[in-house]
Design a protein around this nucleic acid. Structure first.
Lengths: 66, 66
DNA sequence: ACATTATGTAAAGATAGTTTTATATTTTTG
DNA sequence: CAAAAATATAAAACTATCTTTACATAATGT
């Protein structure tokens, strides 16, 4: 699962810790998601979408076929 | 997390088993998601959105505050 | 160059999503 | 009404997400 979190952070000059804070998850969770270690839960994806005023599809890109 | 899976199935006259099959998960997973027992993973939400040609937000509705 | 801040990584443990198998209940159909 | 199909539910096991703690490396600012 690709995502634009790093870019969205950069546009706002936010650190991973800032974003983690805004989404109320740990910094490591943000780092792991940005690095593609695992996918965010659906509720977390919704929270991120709300935070950035974007659709989930505008932040996360699914790479699985079908 | 509310969702419109039951309605979307009904519109197509699909059973839970049919949908499970289309999404390649078990029938119990569909049932549990429809009944709100747990949230689908983000990849599964993407799969459902692709299947129905809808945005994730048009199928699932997050209820958490913030 | 040094100090500070940000990012990457890892292990252990908790919680949530998913499968499999099995059974019970409800709905649909003949 | 009886049979069949669909839905609900449950337990055990497995995998994935997420937290906490801790440390290492990279980037930034003075």
């Amino acid at each position: 699962m690709k995502n634009r979190l790093k870019v969205l952070r950069a546009e706002r000059d936010w650190t991973q810790a800032d974003l983690a804070n805004a989404l109320q998850v740990s910094r490591q969770t943000i780092n792991a998601i940005e690095k593609g270690k695992f996918d965010p839960s659906l509720p977390l994806a919704f929270k991120a979408a709300r935070l950035f005023n974007l659709k989930i599809e505008e932040i996360f890109e699914d790479e699985t076929e079908n």
